[in-house]
């Protein structure tokens, strides 16, 4: 995870195009200025960053399902529950699945677990549009390579 660049996902562990599910990993940094303010003497990862992490996980699932032809954007947080604190240095496992595929949007169910125990979960709505420009598409290609997006998942 690199909070400064909003890069919340470190690697894709599994992308199941048939089941429409994804599992990724995210290593919470041991040190970051965010933890100096949230909170002094009791550092925990802010809930909004956990939601962003679940949204990015959901987004990569959609990018894969849409064969890198469209870009998803977080549109609504239908429900989110922060069930346990996430301190610095934890290794997060993030899961997402498709709840509903609409026209130009999707609803996902996502959760973050540590050691098999759920720390938070959310129902998210993401809208998606064709990539607005080549720069963003190129950036997503580069990130996909960095996080190990399984290219074979795109094969027919």
């Amino acid at each position: 995870m690199q909070f400064e660049y909003f890069q919340m996902i470190d690697r894709i562990l599994d992308l199941n195009m048939d089941e429409k599910t994804i599992t990724v990993e995210a290593q919470v940094p041991q040190h970051n200025t965010v933890f100096e303010g949230h909170f002094p003497g009791y550092p925990i990862m802010p809930g909004v960053l956990l939601i962003e992490t679940m949204a990015q996980c959901s987004g990569w699932l959609l990018v894969g399902l849409m064969k890198f032809e469209r870009m998803p954007f977080l549109a609504a947080v239908k429900e989110a529950k922060m069930r346990g604190f996430v301190p610095p240095g934890e290794l997060l496992t993030v899961h997402a699945s498709i709840h509903h595929e609409g026209s130009g949007y999707a609803i996902t169910e996502a959760k973050i677990t540590v050691g098999g125990k759920t720390r938070c979960n959310a129902t998210l709505m993401l809208s998606h549009i064709p990539f607005p420009n080549p720069d963003l598409r190129g950036h997503m290609d580069a990130v996909a390579k960095r996080i190990g997006f399984p290219q074979q998942a795109l094969l027919p």
């Binding site: 549109a75 609409g102 130009g104 949007y105 609803i107």
Partner: peptide, 10 residues
């Protein structure tokens, strides 16, 4: 309207 579409779809 996306919310409405979701509810109608369901």
């Amino acid at each position: 309207f996306l919310d409405i579409a979701f509810a109608i779809d369901k």
